[in-house]
Amino acid sequence: MTIEASLVPPQSRRLSLAGDLKMMVGDAATITWRNLLGYIRIPEAAFFSSVQPIMFVLLFRYVFGGAIPIPGMTYVNYLIPGIFVQTVAFGAVGTSIGLAQDLHTGLVERFRALPMSRSAVLAGRTVADLVRNVFVVLIITGVGFAVGFRLHASVLAFIAGLGVLLLFSYALSWGFALIGLLAPNAETAQVMSFPILFPLTFASPAFVPVSSMPSWLQGFANNQPVGVVVNTTRVLMNGGPVGSLAWKAVAWSFGILIVLGPLAVRRYRRAS
């Protein structure tokens, strides 16, 4: 038996960079819409995921805060930027859980068999989580002002601080997307996230000055990504010279995106 060659798809259906890009953006928008609807349909989840950071604010402001002297500023002004970063870092776990769920309910299997962009599922998930983070950050801002946070920097600098924060949260989402794709199920995705999150958020200047930590830990706390972003947002929101800090924070965010983003997409293509 002679085997005929495969037919070749019509030219118009093959690669064009502009067409691919348009498809990628459109598909990512569809997936974002679908994920945001998911958040809106479960208001309980949105409610309780903002209760946790609020409780952290109250805990540190009124319970621990009195025992933590900060030279040159009130503890609440020291705390709020740290809470911002801690909240978006913990929120990134949602990215890994959501993705693990889609993967194991068969939905991703359907997406894989559709003529859609390969990266849209991840892009749509991370963009939806960015939108969610904007809301959470707004809530924390309100709570912060309510418990005594006062703006000493310009409004512009405060907004720049939020910008650095949201850029970092978006980069983290991609990292946690990778965890979601590696996890065998949603529950495991959650427990896999914490050994990474805990050292990063607590061995950092988020809640206490690093000067109280042993010297070997100080180096880590000040230079690891969460620490750098906490220091940057804190300076931007309280006024003072930012110096090279902001560049370090932006570099960490882009570094995470550039390294873990493609790894996540690669893993998505392969995961079954």
Partner: peptide, 10 residues
């Protein structure tokens, strides 16, 4: 596919 691959929240 084998299990109904639909989005629960929609």
């Amino acid at each position: 596919g084998q299990y109904a691959a639909v989005d629960e929240n929609l």
